[in-house]
Write a protein that binds this DNA or RNA. Sequence first.
RNA 1: GUGACCGUAGCUAAAUAGGCAGAGCUCUGGAUUGUGGCUCCAGCGGUUGUGGGUUCAAGCCCCAUCGGUCACCCCA
Length: 432
Amino acid sequence: MPQNYKALQGFRDILPDEQAYWYFVEKTATEVAQLYGYRRIETPILEETGVFYRTVGEGTDIVEKEMYSFDDRADKEGHRTNITLRPEGTAGTVRAYLENGLFKLPQPVKLFYFGPFFRREKPQAGRYREHHQFGCEVIGDGDPAIDAELVGLLYQLYTTLGLRYIRVNLNSIGDSNCRPQYIETLKEYYRPLLSDCCQDCQVRFYKNPLRLLDCKEPQDQAKIKAAPKIVEYLCEPCREHFVAVQQFLKQYNVPFTLDPLIVRGLDYYTRTVFEFTSEIDKLALNGGGRYDGLAELLGGPPTPGIGFGAGVERIILELKKQGIVPPVEEKPRAFVVHFGKTAELKEAAVGLVAELRQAGIKAEMSYGDRSPKAQMKQANASGAAYALIIGESELANKSVSVKDLRAGSMETEQKQVEMKREELLPMLKHGH
RNA sequence: GUGACCGUAGCUAAAUAGGCAGAGCUCUGGAUUGUGGCUCCAGCGGUUGUGGGUUCAAGCCCCAUCGGUCACCCCA
């Protein structure tokens, strides 16, 4: 086909056939979030670049090489603002919390959102340059019960969707009190081993030492196993917080695993971090954690917060892998066909469809003046329960021939009756 | 950003060892004029992702480029 344009790399269309999955996930997530007392927020897709710059972290790949950033058009003074397609949801949400004075509301403020996010990565399984996250953020209170609540919420979402084989990994990465010291300890441990490490780890040592623990190279596994773990180096407040989170989480009956090796990639995380992975393919479905220092980075007062982002594409991928099918789209109740080519017949058909739809009955009709046979074929293909036939005789009688398309073959039983127009609606509404 | 594999109709896909690009599904029309599913017939739909090169001849071989899939990196 002659065509000049394709969707950009890593961007894709979500076609109608796919929408049932999206609706299923969004509806379920909304219901679970509301059950937990979360309220929806929407923030702009474009933000000033500064919103993400220091919060997500200057040294992170996201900020360093994956953001879609550009200078906006010049204002009257000729000044151009550098703006960015949001790569994640937390920073913008906290910005909105501060800007709109949500700190004046009873604390904490519990929010959820859906949205497209943009990162210029190389596409891969469950990864796109435009992807969607279901996210929750709780801002304004540092209670460890909230940490447990968020994990409980996510777990309930996945089980409600019907997912199994979900692994919940939990860790604490300390805060500005204890983490810097731990990182020094970790580096001291690694320094003599460095020459024996893989290429990536040599870089990680300087750039993001915590990520040394994330390495998957076989040659480094023994080093990781013997490395000092951050949980053993937490300061007292962080340790107490982490213990409390686990206690509360048991109340939610969420089977979790303490994984001293999970460290999140974004700079703003403190204390509790968690991620849920599929045990089938090790795919991370969501990531999240506490970010008690984030509000200050955005110029606000010290404000505790915690949240997660769950990848909708990844959840849908997992649903498909586990053979979970979303509720099917509702089929039309009736399909109106007209036999004959007069303007009166077509008008009667349009009028009938209009009447049904306005009465709340899902109805379809055939367009383009096709033959009776073609219209009946379409009626059948539409999955409608009934074909409503209007021809010359029906028009004269102010009636409609009703044919049940669901039961039996046409040879065994015709199942066609002529009904008065006024009998039609009650039958379609209440009939089987 | 690095690497591997792969691009044939809307979808799924054939095409010995370079030799006329063939199917199935979908869609449209028809099988005695107002009746669906099953069956049968026909039609629409391709510059084989794109651009070069080798060759008498390229879907097939070579180069480049774009895209897809997957892994690494990183992350939802």
